[in-house]
Design a protein around this nucleic acid. Structure first.
Lengths: 229, 229
DNA sequence: CATTGAATGTGCGCAGTGTCAACATGGGGC
DNA sequence: GCCCCATGTTGACACTGCGCACATTCAATG
């Protein structure tokens, strides 16, 4: 009866699937890529995986947990895109220029991901109405003991996409390219700049602009942020 | 049978309601304020208005149109908040300073609205998956003839929240506080800055920060944008 | 190796949603 | 005064998330 999934791929060995949670998540990711967070429907994911709807509830307490799983995947892909953007450009000789290049590349990677995977991007930032932890959920792994200079409430370092920008900013301070007193909140402001660009160019009439114009706007936006810092 | 609505308020005079579309929209706005876009449910709005669910389809082609109506109201309230913020501060003597003050106030008003009405704010920017006109839908009123320097795809002037910032920028150029060659895209960048701040401080763990910290971040963010321009 | 209990998957049912089709009503124009 | 059409109503369909009772399998234990 299992129509869609060929038993070959990480297959179900009989009655038990073997990796249902992952399979469901993957199916959900696929839907989210195509249709955004609204397209994540538990029953459909189950159907696509060739399993009954209620089976999903053995691996996710409710629909929302499925969405959270998709968010995590999206976050990982976002970080990967940013890392790729970092690696793409060639390093600058001067350490200060290099740190700046990395900051800019991180921001660009952020926006690029939003454009490349709008469905996932929208899914990542969705449904935060009830103060749920949207980013950096993996903090559970770290005991809540140490009191570093870490701004509480900020995405913790385990969230790579955030730390990529944050680290570059730290370097800029060390290298004297950014006055230390302006370091505070700079990470959040930088993040907010690229996020705002992404959202507006994606979910607004600005989305209808030709791609080159969008690219110009993004460049301008990032420049403004870097200048302003 | 009509349980909730007292027949007093703009009442139904018998079988026909008289102003159903508005009544439904208002009910929907109320739900959106409390629970964001997801809370806009057509049947509920009808129920709250004391009317059958399908009656709504005489005024809205589908659920989405109801949401659009709520968006429009939200947009109007956003503009009102920004205008209020403009009027709140006292004007500066120097025209240049004044234009700058207005730009800053407009941005601040934007963020303030997001904080004051998160549900509506989220509703305004929601579900743009299929290139729908999110902002400035009233453009239908204006024939598509004249070719001003208006960047096509940009929210048109009828969208007040946008034009408030745009006008302030124009004044800055006229008064020589902003080089003309940097004027292009400045509006979008400014908009994106305040939007990014709003979204992140609302739909992220940053939402858990104490209010004063958030205010600091917003100030910093706006300063960075203004500086960078 | 047989048994047994927990993990996993199935079927069925409930409440709630968006939407459509067929019918009822009543207010405004001839 | 009559008739038409905008407006509102009832009933139904397909779909969703989710809970409950039952079926099956896997793995550990005697």
């Amino acid at each position: 009866m299992a129509s869609e999934q060929a038993a070959g791929t990480s297959g179900r060995r009989g009655y038990h699937h073997g990796d249902l949670r992952n399979a469901l998540t993957e199916a959900a990711v696929e839907r989210a890529r195509a249709g955004g967070p609204q397209a994540i429907v538990l029953r459909e994911a189950a159907r696509a995986t060739g399993v009954s709807s209620t089976a999903a509830y053995r691996h996710f307490a409710n629909h929302h947990e499925l969405v959270v799983a998709v968010k995590d995947r999206g976050l990982a892909m976002l970080a990967a895109t940013m890392r790729a953007e970092l690696a793409a450009g060639e390093p600058c000789a001067d350490p200060g220029d290099e740190a700046l290049r990395r900051l800019r590349a991180a921001g660009l990677g952020y926006v690029r991901f939003a454009f490349a995977e709008p469905g996932l991007f929208r899914t990542i930032f969705h449904g935060a109405a009830e103060g749920e932890p949207l980013i950096g959920r993996r903090q559970a792994a770290r005991a809540a003991g140490e009191d570093d200079g870490h701004l509480p409430g900020t995405p913790d370092e385990s969230e790579e996409s955030y730390s990529l920008m944050s680290q570059a900013l730290d370097e800029l301070v060390v290298l004297g390219r950014l006055p230390a007193e302006r370091r505070e909140y700079s990470d959040v402001v930088m993040w907010s700049a690229v996020h705002g660009l992404s959202v507006l160019l994606l979910d607004t009439e600005l989305a209808h602009l030709p791609d080159e114009t969008k690219a110009d706007i993004v460049r301008r936006g990032i420049d403004v942020a870097l200048n302003g810092l």
